Amino acid sequence: DLRKKIVDLHKSGSSLGAISKRLKVPRSSVQTIVRKYK
């Protein structure tokens, strides 16, 4: 699940930009998912 991957990467200390590059999703999507998770 993409959300879980993003949250896991964020927990392990990756920046939003790094996560978005790695998973090839827009940075804004990463930000939204991380914000919802918090």
Rank of each mutant, 00 (worst) to 15 (best):
D1G: 11
D1M: 12
D1V: 11
D1A: 13
D1L: 12
D1F: 12
D1N: 12
L2I: 11
L2F: 07
L2T: 06
L2W: 09
R3N: 08
R3W: 15
R3G: 07
R3T: 11
R3F: 14
R3Q: 10
K4D: 09
K4G: 06
K4I: 08
K4Y: 08
K4A: 10
K4F: 08
K4M: 10
K4T: 09
K4E: 08
K4N: 09
K4R: 12
K4V: 07
K5N: 07
K5V: 12
K5I: 13
K5P: 01
K5A: 12
K5T: 10
K5R: 13
K5G: 05
K5Q: 12
I6Q: 00
I6S: 00
I6D: 01
I6A: 02
I6P: 00
V7K: 04
V7N: 04
V7H: 06
V7D: 02
V7E: 07
V7T: 06
V7A: 08
D8Y: 12
L9T: 01
L9H: 02
L9P: 00
L9S: 03
H10I: 11
H10K: 03
H10M: 10
H10L: 13
H10P: 00
H10R: 04
H10F: 15
H10N: 02
K11W: 05
K11N: 11
K11L: 14
K11C: 15
K11A: 08
K11H: 07
S12V: 06
S12I: 06
S12P: 00
S12Q: 13
S12M: 12
G13R: 02
G13L: 02
G13F: 00
G13S: 02
G13H: 02
G13K: 03
G13I: 03
S14N: 12
S14W: 15
S15Q: 03
S15T: 08
S15K: 04
S15P: 05
S15A: 05
L16K: 04
L16I: 15
L16S: 06
L16R: 03
G17D: 11
G17I: 11
G17S: 14
G17K: 13
G17E: 11
G17A: 13
A18H: 08
A18D: 13
A18N: 10
A18R: 07
A18Y: 10
I19H: 01
I19G: 01
I19T: 01
I19L: 01
I19Q: 00
S20N: 02
S20E: 03
S20A: 14
S20C: 06
S20L: 03
S20T: 05
S20H: 04
K21T: 07
K21F: 02
K21W: 01
K21E: 10
R22M: 15
R22G: 07
R22I: 15
R22L: 15
R22N: 11
L23H: 01
L23I: 04
L23Q: 02
L23R: 01
L23N: 03
L23T: 05
K24T: 05
K24W: 04
K24E: 07
K24Q: 12
K24R: 11
K24H: 12
K24I: 05
K24Y: 05
V25P: 01
V25D: 04
V25S: 03
V25G: 01
V25R: 02
V25M: 08
V25N: 03
P26A: 11
P26L: 05
P26G: 07
P26E: 05
P26T: 09
P26M: 04
R27F: 14
R27N: 04
R27I: 14
R27L: 15
R27M: 13
R27D: 04
R27W: 07
S28F: 08
S28D: 08
S28R: 12
S28V: 08
S28E: 09
S28L: 09
S28Q: 12
S28G: 10
S29N: 08
S29G: 07
S29Y: 15
S29T: 15
S29D: 10
S29E: 12
S29H: 14
S29M: 15
S29F: 15
V30E: 02
V30T: 01
V30L: 04
V30H: 04
V30D: 03
V30C: 11
V30K: 03
V30A: 04
V30Y: 00
Q31P: 03
Q31R: 15
Q31F: 02
Q31D: 08
Q31M: 05
Q31A: 14
Q31Y: 06
Q31H: 06
Q31G: 08
T32Q: 14
T32F: 08
T32K: 15
T32R: 15
T32H: 13
I33Q: 04
I33T: 07
I33A: 08
I33F: 00
I33R: 04
I33E: 05
V34N: 02
V34F: 00
V34P: 00
V34E: 01
V34K: 02
V34L: 11
V34Y: 00
V34M: 05
V34D: 03
R35F: 04
R35P: 05
R35N: 11
R35E: 14
K36G: 07
K36W: 14
K36I: 09
K36Q: 12
K36E: 14
Y37V: 08
Y37K: 05
Y37F: 10
Y37W: 12
K38D: 09
K38E: 12
K38L: 14
K38M: 13
